[in-house]
Computed example of a mutant assay.
Amino acid sequence: MKATVLGCGRWGTFHAWYANRIGHDVVLWGRTGSRHLAELQEERKNEYLTLDRAVRLTDDLEAAVAYADTIIISISSQQLRPFGKQLAALGSLHGKQFVLCMKGLEIGTGKRLTEVLEEEIGAEARIAVWVGPGHVQDFTRGVPNCMVIASREQALAKELVARFKSPLIRFYYGADLLGTEIGAAAKNVIGLAAGMLDGYGYGSLKGALMARGTHELSRLIEAMGGDRMTVYGLSHLGDYEATLFSQHSNNRRFGEDLIRGVPFTKLAEGVYTVEALMALSQQYGVELPICATVYAIVHEHKSPKDQLMQLFLRATRAE
């Protein structure tokens, strides 16, 4: 079987590594001039893993898309719309399956990533998302985990689960695409808050953060028409260990470094996602106290300590 991976950052490279490991013939694409692609072409490795020589590297997008019917996309979520326009311009997408391996929401619209890609490449497109817990650093050491693949087309989700399952990753198929996408995106925002607590040495508050975080997001998912119980699955609550506690979590590290005044240069998707969540909060009339607190700290530059204390010392109410 063949697979194309578009995006050669941390997770894109992992998906190429993984697909090759379980027996797929893989092409990995990166943008022309990408330092990530140049590093892989020169040394076949990055700071996370080493790629087998069988994985073909290219900066030719048209050739990469033509190579396989299963197209895995792993890029910055905010770049998906312009990238979708590039894909649509190729004019050769019939019969392709697109698997989005990013977690985010579009700033300005609050749209889910499947909605964004569908708008750009056509409503008939077969699109799924692949999300859930795990870190590249653990997977490449052979540490197994569970993940979820969801699509509005259940047959596609089941087909992809069968194609990519292995002893390293046990897959479940998601029945609620909306809840899976919102939950996966929002857990990064909760991760920012967890890092801020770590920065102050308030890690014991993470239990409360987890309990209240799942609750507020369940209300939003329900208001948007999804299943509120989805937030308690692998895409959100199931990913909390990897996002709220792990040293590998970019979102947690961003929050901690912000409190400590240390510059953080890697991608932390929660920084962008919280903007979209606040727009959805207003649109659907759902209060999101944790997300609002993170937004006030990160984007309005309000006092982190004051905001966090106000959050956890809110007026007494029933749980």
Rank of each mutant, 00 (worst) to 15 (best):
Ser249Arg: 05
Arg163Met: 14
Ile297Cys: 12
Gly203Pro: 11
Glu42Thr: 15
Thr109Ser: 13
Arg112Phe: 04
Thr32Leu: 08
Met229Arg: 10
Leu308Gly: 04
Gly134Met: 14
Ala175Leu: 11
Gln154His: 12
Arg253Cys: 09
Glu120Phe: 06
Ser204Leu: 12
Gly203Ile: 13
Gly201Val: 15
Ser246Tyr: 07
Arg152Gln: 13
Tyr284Ile: 09
Lys85Thr: 14
Met278Ala: 06
Lys305Thr: 09
Gly238Lys: 02
Arg10Asn: 12
Gly233Leu: 03
Ala128His: 10
Leu168Trp: 07
Val131Ser: 10
Gly142Leu: 03
Gly238Val: 03
Ile72Leu: 10
Gln283Ile: 13
Leu220Cys: 04
Arg170Ile: 02
Met309Gln: 12
Arg141Gln: 14
Phe83Met: 03
Val286Asn: 07
Pro289Arg: 02
Gln41Trp: 00
Arg219Cys: 07
Gly122Ser: 04
Gly84Ser: 02
Leu217Ala: 11
Leu40Ser: 05
Ser76Asn: 04
Gly179Phe: 10
Ala242His: 03
Gly122Met: 14
Ala125Ile: 02
Thr265Lys: 15
Arg253Leu: 11
Leu37His: 03
Gly199Ser: 12
Arg141Asp: 05
Tyr295Pro: 10
Glu159Lys: 15
Ile169Glu: 07
Arg53Ala: 15
Leu90Thr: 02
His299Tyr: 13
Leu220Trp: 01
Pro82Glu: 00
Ala3Ser: 12
Ile182Gly: 03
Tyr173Cys: 10
